[in-house]
Design a protein around this nucleic acid. Sequence first.
RNA 1: GCGCCCGUAGCUCAGUCGGAUAGAGCAUCAGCCUUCUAAGCUGAGGGUCGUUGGUUCGAUUCCAACCGGGCGCGCCA
Length: 584
Amino acid sequence: MTQGVVQDKVSAALVGALRLAQQRGVLKIAHMPIVSLEAPKRPEWGDVSSTVAMSLSASERRPPYEIAQIIIDHLEQRDALFNRVEIARPGFLNLTVKQQLWMEVLREIETQGIAYGHNEVGQGRRVLVEYVSANPTGPLHVGHGRGAAVGQALVRLLKASGHEVVSEFYINDAGRQMNLLGVSVLARYLESCGKSMPFPEEGYQGEYIRSVAERLRAEQGDGLLSLPVMEAELLSKEFAYRELLALIRQDLERFGIVFESWFSEASLLTSGIVEQVLGELKARNLLFDQDGAQWFRSSTFGDDKDRVVRKQEGDYTYLASDIAYHRDKLRRGFDLLVDVWGADHHGYIPRMQAVVQAYGYPKERLKVVLVQMVNLLRGGKKVEMSKRAGEFITLREVMDEVGADAAKFFFLLRESSTHLDFDLELAKQQSQENPVYYVQYAHARIASLRRVAAARGIDCPLPSQANLDLLQDPDELALIRKLSAFPVVLQASAQELEPHRIAYYLRELAGMLHPFYNKHRILPPAPESEASSVATSDSPTSASRRPAVVAPALTGARLALMWAVQQVVRNGLDVLGVSAPEQM
RNA sequence: GCGCCCGUAGCUCAGUCGGAUAGAGCAUCAGCCUUCUAAGCUGAGGGUCGUUGGUUCGAUUCCAACCGGGCGCGCCA
């Protein structure tokens, strides 16, 4: 748990002051509060502030202002840490930290490198993140893409927060859907053999079914014609399953996602595990028979009603295999299960939490992250999709059009539980309207700066090698303060399972870098030979545009600062699974 | 009808241990390339934080009711 290197020191100093005041009997302080600091909105309020005096006011039965004054009076290293210590109206403690102290942020970034911002709040707890989990009945569409981006970001986020994480894809390869897939492919297969067969009522219409059938025919020739229908259907189903799962895997890889584990629903059924699990529940009186079906007593664990696990005809419902699946996850010893689901499944949450509780765990052991629908737009106009007609935009098409990085970043730009407008034109655009490029450009721009510096033989020191005392400009300090906030953002993001916070942070950081770059000269002006031949030195415009002189030591310090910004941009993008290009 | 989510600038949205004069991007308007990438920057306008009550020194944030929108309420997944 860190608030940043500087904030931690300030926080410790304030706690020290409170302790001292307590020892001297000036304050009672029954419970030592957590002194959290915030970054004030206005520069005149210092660079860190605390509301601790206000929160103590009630229990101390004194006005916040007095308490703030007491804290200040008991600060032991006041002059070593602060330039200014002020109290504002009700009892805000506004602190301006010594500039040298902020430089530790840069050294911290250098020491930690790609791990800067990471934390250990997970304490090695084991987490299983299950995401995408699409039916292998067709290619991934845009909605899956968002789930994939969110899931991957969660995995990385949790890993960066000291968790041991396994990512898993639950293959819904059992039941009616798969049978329909087999029938659909067989129908197209027969069609291509010249035999007409009425296409199944609710079959899969997509064009990809035809190409699967074509490949089946290429492999088997007309062989299926002579088989009994049942056998031909089974063969078609298995063939299609292999083809489509491979397709899904390829699409995910192209998207930069590789799962550590794949779990088959069908395996739970064929191995008899589902049956066994239901037997256990039955023995514990958690199942009952009614109307010829078998029910799970989920209502005793907070669900609205009980749910069927075995239908009248004897088939298991999806809930039955989900019970077995989640029992398996729990048995594997995970401290936390994270399921990433489409938001339309939200009514299913109490049911699954009932399952978790039936196995003796608190329902918080399962956390469900909901991912809302993606509204696909093109130049502001809605792209119509019809799932029934098999007309939908696939993830692959989106990647082909805008690239995997842009797609991912857009998917992660909003809180996952809210609807997302995804404009393909915008995601393709290479301008500041496009937040992906805006952020990536910050990284590339700094890379470019260093390339130019290297080409001119200018030294590019790391923070530890630079004279950081020269960084005194408010803009420089503001950047450093922003960098110091990254660990806090990362931690909150992991804790709340909300990766979009990282995306926002990155946009803000880039939004500070670009103006800085524009305003402050970093490298000394280019050698005269390139530009001066035409320049008329008495022209007022040319005079006003003459580059400012930058002392070599300041160049070094600023390059070190830029290096740190670049590192943090990279770290943030890394957590989101988005690349940080050296050049754009 | 019951349950869950949402209502913040023209648009899309940030803002979760309650804090100071409510933020960003886009769009609009007016400007900036002889310089380290203009894939960039500067400036301007824009708000009853859905409504009404309650708790509090203080509410966009917590509570209640209501209004408006989305979703769920299958022996489908």
